[in-house]
């Protein structure tokens, strides 16, 4: 066995949670090769050390805090029921008013228009939407909608955005004259860093999830009152 093979086999042995010294071939090579012997020993030190790491304990009141938060925030279905009554009207008003909103910064260049998506939604999509997390959306401008997807496939809100499960690392939806934390059109708000993701690129990335994203846009537009956008901006 050569040293390169030793290392590959060492990985394979550790992958099945066996000790390197239990493996005949590894042991045979290590007995003749001091560097590989030390390499295996180092992995042993690491993994023994990891196994012996002290287990940190959370605060005693953690469970109580979780349960309290569950009580304070209404369940999604109940909130949907409350919001549902105003959805259609709100969406119509918001969409109609968007072009009339004053520009936050007149110096912002007018970007090329994004491909027009047809916004519509379904009762099922509303039902699935994670209203509890709406408050956490990084809304930073009157018409900015930022959808951040951090590969959290188990999060229903992000599943909604992800749609086809293509594993987009992040999605920021742009609307004219607005800026977001992961890219910008025009001028980014003070304190925000641009990462230079541009509309064309975003459009291509969004193509596989067009329908789901459109649904999400629609839901957000409907769900967040205009006054909230203004308050947060």
């Amino acid at each position: 066995m050569k040293c390169e093979e030793f290392e590959r086999r060492l990985d394979a042995v550790l992958d099945v949670r066996r000790r390197p010294e239990w493996d005949v071939r590894l042991r045979a090579h290590a007995e003749q090769c001091a560097p590989c012997r030390r390499l295996a020993a180092s992995y042993g030190v690491l993994l023994d050390g990891v196994a012996a790491l002290p287990v940190p304990e959370p605060s005693a009141d953690l469970t109580a805090r979780v349960m309290s938060e569950m009580r304070v925030r209404p369940a999604a279905s109940r909130r949907v029921a409350l919001v549902g009554a105003v959805l259609a009207t709100a969406a119509a008003v918001v969409v109609a008013l968007l072009p009339l909103l004053p520009k936050r910064d007149q110096r912002v260049a007018t970007p090329d228009p994004l491909p027009a998506y047809s916004f519509h939604t379904t009762e099922a999509a509303v039902e699935e939407f994670d209203w509890a997390n709406l408050d956490e959306l990084p809304v930073v401008g009157p018409v900015l909608i930022s959808i951040r997807d951090d590969d959290e496939t188990t999060d229903p809100y992000e599943e909604l955005a992800k749609g086809t499960g293509q594993g987009l690392a992040s999605v920021v939806l742009y609307m004219p004259g607005v800026a977001g934390p992961r890219g910008f059109i025009g001028t980014a708000p003070a304190g925000m860093r641009s990462q230079g993701v541009f509309p064309e690129q975003m459009s291509q990335e969004l193509e596989p999830v067009r329908e789901s994203v459109a649904e999400t846009i629609n839901l957000l537009l409907r769900a967040v009152p205009l006054a909230d956008f203004a308050r947060r901006s």
């Binding site: 940190p56 959370p58 605060s59 953690l62 805090r65 979780v66 938060e69 569950m70 925030r73 369940a75 999604a76 699935e128 994670d130 509890a132 997390n133 188990t154 999060d155 229903p156």
Partner: peptide, 22 residues
């Protein structure tokens, strides 16, 4: 970071519990 870990733990449970039916 202990406090961040506490906050994320709490958030994680709330998210998970809310998503249990799915």
């Amino acid at each position: 970071h202990r406090q961040d870990a506490e906050d994320v733990t709490q958030e994680c449970f709330v998210r998970a519990l809310r998503s249990l039916r799915r």
